[in-house]
Design a binder for these strands. Structure first.
Lengths: 344, 344
DNA sequence: AAGGATCACGAAATCGTTTTCGGAGCTAAA
DNA sequence: TTTAGCTCCGAAAACGATTTCGTGATCCTT
């Protein structure tokens, strides 16, 4: 049973003044006497008054809430992004409504509509792997609510800011490093769908091979529908079984790389002596496996922070009716070489 | 610049009917003619009408939002809890406002106040390690807003439901298993603060030793202020340096255990031959390290689901003015033995 | 033809805050 | 003494959706 929450008029009645005065006293307006302010604040504390932000938001047309749509929460990279988002948001007095699309386009649309109904002040979004239409995001932009995409986005979306990482270069560097240490048959464990991040990593792989005049063997490119250790393990088995074998591997994500490492070991293949492996994301656990996994760093925390900073800037500009210039920030990656491959 | 969002009165005006009728038509009330309903729905779709849930919530005194306070987002266990929460909430038509206390008591209080101001319909919370007073939660209960604690809670908090893990038994089983495979000097890497979960794991460790007449050596119990690989690694070094050595280790969490494994290896100690190791949480990565880490399973996803189900049940009861009976659900743990210790 | 039931809708209050106008009372300047 | 300028506060109108009463039709019954 919901007991009554204290409201402004309760305070006003008790003190024999109007709600207007109470409201202004609590917000420290200049034209309220010090004496009144003090009385109001004292009573508000005593009665544990918590303003109803629904009413305030309705009146002010701003909620101080930002919506976040993310494909998957149980993912070390996205978790770090969320942390970055929440810290910057909190410091600016904003709260976060989090939605997980679960890599499901329909749910993504549904979440977007709900956040629009909630009148969030801005939206941060990362696309599901199979999202191809963007009307649910255009709805935000049309209503004047800033949207910033991070990580998984699409070049088709115009007129809005983005924070991405340089997947292409990261992948290129990784594969180049494998080539320079003598690998001739380099496999790639590829991500699912047409997500641009994964496509860019694939492109980096292909371009590196081409630049060094290595042939592209379709047998060496395996699309992994989900990112699990086991999927990486099975892919390694598949590669070992190839007539021409394999001597290097670049995986679209660390979990697959580690799984593959395990799969190779099961088949008696030495890492890095017989197969050199490089992953992508550089999350903490890569140092824990043996040999430690070389990986391309993917700065999730920084991505979350920057995306939120840009969003807050646009929210502010939007409020002041200034015009906003959208920007695309590309965060650099870095190849961190460890025991699973050789430094060159 | 915020362009105007369509509202009920816009639709009403266009159709030459009242907002009351529009509202009822959209909600499929029985006393609106089929013809009118259809016209309203058609226009709402055409104009992309999104109801302002602030206004609706203000009027209805329910937001369909549940608040979540969690110590840390970048944590595999909590990430799974969040996933469980969000799925159950979504299926019931609820949204989630997520707050991360960052293991900071003051921020926890601040978050609680903000969620109260947002008039969330219910709260799910897990305590920060150093939280000792609970007024900020009692505020919710006093106002009639259901609260359910999960994982990190306190027996001091009465009259509310909880979903916890049987940390004590899990720890006991782990240590018992080490004893049964012959370990005599078993170390424990302990969690920080007075968090009850960690205390219970410590208690399981101590009781197992006592039950098997093994002495408790304070040198073998190391409190780890943070959960990082490196902290585990350094703790292992510290243990190796003990005059009497160490032949078993139970860590309060997997990350520390894996770090310790690395630390032992660096000192030339064989796992599990010279030191057997068991962790806690059983997250996916334990299978990736070598040797695979034995660990106590900690069902985070299930915890999130159950906590949310209980909360929704209490919200419903509260709405119907039924009285609610609080419950404490204890989820079972299970020792999963892998290569880092022997099965007995 | 009168009474009652049913149908389809509208007027207006309501949720709790914020803010735009003021307006009363007082002081100081002319 | 009038006027202007302060200081401090209140009345009331928003914000947008929901819902409680109604009310005017229409149809059926007798």
């Amino acid at each position: 049973m919901h007991k009554k929450q204290i409201k402004l008029s309760d305070l006003a009645e008790e003190l024999g003044i109007s709600t207007a005065t109470v409201s202004r006293a609590l917000k420290n307006y200049p034209d309220i006497s010090a004496e009144t302010k003090q009385k109001v604040i004292a009573l508000a504390n005593k009665w544990n008054y918590r303003p109803n932000s629904l009413a305030a938001s309705l009146r002010n047309k701003e909620t101080h809430i930002i919506g976040v749509i993310i494909p998957e929460v149980v993912n070390h990279f996205f978790a770090k992004v969320i942390k970055g988002i929440m810290e910057v948001a909190y410091d600016a007095g904003y709260r976060v409504m989090l939605c997980q699309s679960n890599e499901d386009y329909d749910k993504e649309v549904d979440d977007a509509h709900a956040l629009l109904s909630s009148r969030v002040d801005g939206l941060l979004a990362s696309l599901a792997n199979h999202t191809r239409t963007f009307e649910h995001f255009y709805d935000f932009m049309d209503s004047g609510t800033p949207v910033v995409f991070f990580d998984k986005t699409s070049p088709e979306i115009k007129d809005c800011s983005k924070v991405i990482i340089d997947d292409y270069s990261g992948a290129y560097q990784a594969v180049e490093s494998l080539i320079q240490q003598g690998c001739k048959r380099i496999a790639h464990l590829q991500g699912p769908g047409n997500a641009h991040t994964f496509q860019n990593r694939l492109r980096g792989y292909l371009t590196a091979l081409k630049d060094y005049q290595l042939p592209v063997d379709p047998d060496l490119i395996i699309e992994c529908p989900e990112f699990t250790l086991n999927r990486g393990r099975l892919s390694a088995h598949q590669l070992v079984a190839l007539p021409k074998g394999v001597d290097g591997l670049f995986a679209v994500t660390d979990l697959l790389a580690i799984g593959a490492m395990k799969g190779f070991r099961e088949k008696g293949i030495q890492v890095p002596e017989e197969v050199a492996i490089i992953g992508f994301s550089n999350w903490e656990m890569v140092e824990a496996v043996f040999p430690p996994l070389s990986s391309v760093s993917q700065p999730g925390y920084e991505m979350g922070r920057q995306a939120t900073q840009i969003l807050l800037k646009e929210i502010k500009a939007s409020k002041n009716e200034e015009d906003i210039t959208h920007e695309t920030v590309t965060l650099a990656t870095e190849l961190v070489v460890r025991g699973s491959s050789k430094s060159v």
